[in-house]
Design a protein around this nucleic acid. Structure first.
Lengths: 282, 282
DNA sequence: ATAATAGTGTCTATCAGACATTATCTG
DNA sequence: CAGATAATGTCTGATAGACACTATTAT
């Protein structure tokens, strides 16, 4: 590898320049370049585990003034998109070390009416917060209850009196021999999500649904210690269908360690549940 | 929705501007912006279906002069990243209507020594070409045999006498409760892939391996009509492990339609195989 | 006691893994 | 015929779906 490096450093291009000389004289030119943002879907479970919630911020300026939007920010030159997303996530929630993964990059011309902007979308999964802190403080930011079915998306925040609703139409899309089921959203409410953020939400939820059964992502949405009814509620909220208790428990059992304690999980009556943690692999 | 649009168009921001006025006066400012390229992994099966091949082009200028690289190009303002990738794919192979899907966006600062460049990686799957056209013509472009195992990556082109090899070390990486197995490449040959293109290759192959059993991607790598030994070879090449014939056939059988003809699939002796096509869903 | 939830037992259908056997083609 | 590959049959073990039953708690 050293010999290779040395060899390459002497190699001259058609203008007679070595790599070092070439880079010293390199002129980035005046091509038009896009701005690139990292936008984040921050997902959590609501208090009684009956569904998902999504963190949105309210826009204070044009375009889409007064509309709710995904938190996000421009990526800077000395950082990765992941770092930008993690920074934004911490600013918004105060949380670090949270599950955060790149979902998809959105590049459609005109998706931002101001100028040419691409968006690298990230999905963050936050546990039930013992302290429900940092969310609707500072500017206008709030958790919205999210209902994502096969035929509609509903985002609502009772306290703020906001309800955003889209109907979904399934459309098959061919990519070579592969066929996708795409959801085409149509706005049904007065309020709307800013930019193409519905589409980002749809893509992220599709991906999460595909992966949830074969990954440990569900464990990111509960506390470090959790009960099986709580964990099952996470799967059911994401998949939007009930799971059989026994099959579910068989599926996750080998990933669990009992803590030894028991406690109540949901609010309504009934028996106490055993508490578990995710098994630490050695 | 119309009322909503009308309402919003009158809404003024803190400077007293409507959305229209705001956009007319919008100054994109002088922030630094990245260049963004669409780079493509173009994968196909080699002639006797014994393995995968990858299309690479040879760089004629710094940086990484003389190195082999993934084809790609800058995304322009009036197109999506997908369109840029499709355009590049057609230039390189003459093919249209091919499977093409976004894999991941690479943003690490310094990944291009010239300037700030992000890359949106695409995966293209091309069928066995009856005409093996358009590949090693024009500039220097060539199909490389690709061997991707758990411990190494090998890219070789006998005709050009080029062999690129990396060893792979597995490393676990924690993302919240989720653990990933990452492959860390280390260059073993004199020749190397340009930029961070090994990492792009690794990510794309990981994703393809995860999806191949639950998607129709394998059908993109064979002709419209194919035999089961041919199709099985595709799965085995991607998964890098043998599959049991019977289980494999049970798995794919409901996706197939017999054409009625029989023909020989591989070069070596033996019986003729039935020919199939992918079943058209109604 | 009753209602509600937590947790377990068991049957079935399906399917991947594993091998064995039969069928067809080339030389 | 021998050697090679194609295609199919069958057994096993694991598992998701489905339902029934027992256990524990609050009111």
């Amino acid at each position: 590898m050293n010999t290779k490096t040395v060899k390459r450093s002497n190699r001259k291009n058609k203008d007679g320049l070595t790599e070092k000389q070439f880079l010293e004289r390199y002129d980035p030119g005046n091509y038009k370049r896009p701005s690139v943002t990292a936008d984040i879907l921050i997902l959590g479970m609501n208090e009684d585990h009956s569904g998902l919630k999504l963190l949105l911020i309210k826009r204070g300026n044009h375009p889409f003034i007064d509309c709710w939007a995904l938190p996000g920010g421009f990526i800077e030159e000395n950082e990765t998109a992941y770092q930008a997303a993690a920074r934004e996530l911490e600013e918004e929630t105060g949380l670090k070390g949270i599950y955060l993964d790149q979902v998809y990059t959105f590049t459609k011309p005109g998706r931002d009416p101001r100028t040419w902007v691409m968006s690298i979308a990230y999905l963050a999964l936050v546990p039930e917060l013992d302290e429900v802190k940092g969310c609707d403080d500072a500017e206008d930011a709030a958790w919205f209850d999210l209902k994502f079915t096969d035929s509609s998306i509903e985002l609502s925040n009772e306290e703020k009196g906001v309800s955003i609703e889209y109907s979904l139409k399934k459309e098959t899309f061919s990519n070579g021999a592969v066929k996708y089921e795409n959801f085409i959203p149509e706005l049904k409410s007065d309020e709307a999500l800013a930019f193409d953020h519905v589409e980002i939400l749809i893509e992220a939820m599709k991906k999460l649904r595909e992966q949830i059964l074969y990954s440990n992502q569900a464990f990111c949405l509960v506390n470090r210690t959790f009960t099986l009814p709580e964990l099952q509620a996470v799967y059911e909220a994401i998949l939007n269908r009930p799971l059989y208790k026994k099959s579910f428990r068989d599926m996750v059992s080998e990933k669990l360690t009992e803590t030894g304690t028991e406690r109540r999980s949901c609010i309504k009556g009934g028996r106490t549940s055993k508490e578990y943690t995710l098994k630490q692999e050695i």
